[in-house]
Nucleic acid binder design. Structure first.
Length: 192
DNA sequence: CCAATTTGACCACC
DNA sequence: GGTGGTCAAATTGG
């Protein structure tokens, strides 16, 4: 009787998990590409298109879930979310809001860890997003919208999201989520 | 009245 | 210096 079943090879559970997630991500991306091309063959509102849009939305959600699962699987030296110190000090006059001579302090805007998905509409994930900016992008037809987690002040949620309408297909939205505490490993999978 | 959005200005990076 | 990302006052909607 085999007392235990050993995994083939000397891969660690984390490695197995990573390979699995990579395969899933690859499949999800291929599916997204295929489904996106299918969308162009069907009129908006048609049953096939509605179903395809739902599938695309589900894929996006699944990718986000994979991101979270992957993080928990390799949680070792990840620094616990630092006590979020909101540096934005509201200096609001009691009578008028017209002021602000003080210079604003900006943090580094570099977001090395990100996850890009393409959907037909806004992603409905676990986050509640709040729009904080919109920018016209050079050489781009449509502006880019910037969202951040609504719970940033009270829960220290540092996730941000950029959403831009696709130039080739205005019905598609390129959504890039950035979260320095959550998407590090996901990027490694996507960039291989 | 409060919360979310809009929008122009500010700042960092290339 | 140009472009992109963020801030925050002003505005709008529930």
């Amino acid at each position: 009787m085999e007392a235990s079943v050993k995994r083939q090879g000397s891969t660690s559970p984390v490695s197995d998990w990573k390979v699995t997630v990579e395969a899933l991500i690859r499949g999800a991306r291929d599916s997204t590409t295929l489904l996106s091309s299918l969308l162009q063959d069907h009129a908006p509102g048609s049953p096939t298109r509605v179903l395809t849009e739902e599938i695309l939305s589900s894929i996006s959600k699944a990718l986000l879930v994979l991101d979270d699962c992957k993080k928990s699987a390799v949680q070792r030296t990840s620094n616990p979310s630092p006590p979020f110190s909101d540096h934005t000090q509201k200096v609001v006059s009691s009578s008028k809001r017209k002021i602000i001579p003080a210079r604003r302090v900006y943090k580094s805007r570099s977001q090395p860890y990100s996850c890009t998905t393409i959907t037909t509409k806004t992603i409905n994930d676990a986050y509640s997003w709040r729009k904080y900016g919109q920018k016209r992008i050079y050489n781009a037809t449509f502006p880019r919208c910037y969202y951040r987690c609504t719970h940033k002040p009270d829960r220290g949620c540092q996730a941000t999201r950029q959403v831009q309408q696709s130039e080739e297909d205005p019905a598609m939205f390129v959504s890039t989520r950035a979260d320095p505490t959550r998407t590090k490993l996901l990027l490694q999978s996507l960039t291989t």
